[in-house]
Amino acid sequence: MAKRRQFGYIRKLPSGRFQASFVDPAGVRQYAPDTFKARPDASRWLALVEADISRGTWTNDQRGKELFGDYATSVLRDSSQIGPRWRETCERNLRLHLVPLVKTPLRSLSPTVVRQWHAEALRGSGGRTSIAQSYRFMRMVMNTAVREELIQRNPCQVPGAGLVQAKERPIATPAEVIKLVEAIHPKYRTAVLIAAWCALRRGEIAGLLVSDVDLAAGTITVRKNRVELLKGGTAFDGDPKTEAGRRTIAIPPHVVPLVRLHLAEFAGSERLFVSRDGTALRGNTLYQAFKRARAAAKLEHLTFHDLRHTGQTLAAQAGATLADLMRRLGHASMVAAKRYLHVVDGRDAEIAKALSDLAEHGDAAKLPRSITMRS
């Protein structure tokens, strides 16, 4: 019976210890990280490596020595899926929150190390949102390392570490929207109305062109998102994050006349909203104008983004379905749109309250004749 050929190669060194090596799937000779006291020890190590290769779980120990900071930087540099705003955020978090890990080899980032880093970060002075962003970035980097076979599994196993429990956002009433419109500079009134009644983001509003408005059809089409970076003050028109972000939205009829007035008095030759010098409106300019308006209207609890939340909530109250909300939001996922259906779902709580009143009074005549949604 022919003897099975041994995987790898073992040689005895002048020191008397044994060195084990093998040729990896890429055709490169790899050496054991340590020498062995006895030949059987070297043979057992080779047998484990052979088994890992046959199962497809073998990783290159030498490549796994690459430092997390260096590898994360290269992933940021080379990934075409990372937008400029998210890249800037990740670079900042790498400097601020992930510093304790930047000199750690990839293969040394165990679930315990990651858990301890996360717990220590939460005990520090950093914000919960930026820490969650840092964790998501690290998880993405380590997923890349798994795909590139530098490590066997992702060590980012902390439940919920990448999530931030969003607080319930305030909802502006139609009367409060009017107060803001009256308080803000006339050239920005339409921006407030579009945010509140069409649920556009600030960047989407700043990116609108005159050609994106169709008064005859009563629609606004979102094609671009104005991106502004903190570093260097760079600004440019970027594509929406997903194809769903490109969308055409019906303008409520009561807003159309004000959009028409804006086009006649304040719009630029190409841009729907412009700065004093006629260039594209900067998001911060709109934000500062909004801050002054909310102070004058005594509505300091509202943010500009709350207007988008208001628009979707009012749409849900008006009977918009989940699909309707997703389309108006420009979201490919239903997760965000579901947040606004709690207003409609609130009918069940009102029905339950009415049933409790019936049990308490024992008299159906004392109950309200109808159950209506709260405005």
Score class of each variant (00 low, 15 high):
residue 241 K to I: 10
residue 230 L to D: 07
residue 253 P to M: 02
residue 226 R to V: 07
residue 243 E to S: 14
residue 253 P to L: 04
residue 243 E to Q: 13
residue 228 E to H: 06
residue 237 D to C: 02
residue 248 T to W: 14
residue 231 K to G: 02
residue 259 V to K: 05
residue 260 R to D: 11
residue 252 P to L: 06
residue 259 V to I: 15
residue 238 G to P: 03
residue 247 R to T: 03
residue 253 P to N: 00
residue 236 F to L: 01
residue 226 R to E: 06
residue 245 G to P: 07
residue 243 E to W: 14
residue 252 P to F: 10
residue 245 G to F: 08
residue 248 T to E: 10
residue 231 K to F: 07
residue 257 P to I: 09
residue 257 P to D: 08
residue 249 I to L: 13
residue 248 T to G: 07
residue 256 V to S: 11
residue 226 R to K: 11
residue 232 G to K: 09
residue 256 V to R: 15
residue 248 T to F: 15
residue 244 A to T: 02
residue 235 A to H: 05
residue 249 I to P: 09
residue 242 T to N: 05
residue 233 G to R: 09
residue 260 R to G: 06
residue 246 R to D: 01
residue 257 P to M: 11
residue 247 R to Q: 04
residue 257 P to V: 09
residue 237 D to R: 00
residue 226 R to D: 08
residue 252 P to Y: 07
residue 250 A to C: 07
residue 243 E to K: 13
residue 260 R to P: 03
residue 256 V to K: 13
residue 252 P to R: 00
residue 250 A to D: 11
residue 250 A to Q: 08
residue 247 R to H: 09
residue 259 V to Q: 05
residue 259 V to T: 05
residue 244 A to K: 03
residue 229 L to A: 07
residue 227 V to A: 00
residue 244 A to C: 04
residue 230 L to M: 04
residue 229 L to Y: 13
residue 229 L to I: 12
residue 254 H to I: 05
residue 251 I to S: 03
residue 259 V to A: 08
residue 226 R to Y: 15
residue 255 V to G: 06
residue 240 P to A: 01
residue 234 T to H: 06
residue 256 V to I: 15
residue 230 L to Q: 06
residue 234 T to A: 08
residue 231 K to R: 10
residue 260 R to S: 11
residue 251 I to D: 01
residue 226 R to M: 15
residue 252 P to D: 02
residue 231 K to I: 11
residue 244 A to P: 06
residue 236 F to C: 00
residue 228 E to C: 08
residue 238 G to I: 04
residue 245 G to L: 04
residue 237 D to V: 00
residue 253 P to V: 04
residue 240 P to G: 02
residue 247 R to P: 07
residue 250 A to I: 10
residue 243 E to F: 14
residue 253 P to W: 05
residue 255 V to C: 10
residue 248 T to L: 11
residue 252 P to M: 02
residue 256 V to L: 15
residue 245 G to Y: 05
residue 259 V to S: 06
residue 230 L to T: 08
residue 232 G to R: 09
residue 242 T to E: 05
residue 229 L to D: 05
residue 248 T to C: 12
residue 239 D to I: 08
residue 246 R to G: 02
residue 239 D to H: 10
residue 233 G to Y: 15
residue 226 R to T: 03
residue 247 R to C: 08
residue 234 T to V: 13
residue 250 A to V: 13
residue 235 A to W: 01
residue 259 V to L: 15
residue 236 F to M: 01
residue 231 K to T: 13
residue 235 A to V: 15
residue 252 P to E: 01
residue 230 L to P: 02
residue 255 V to Y: 12
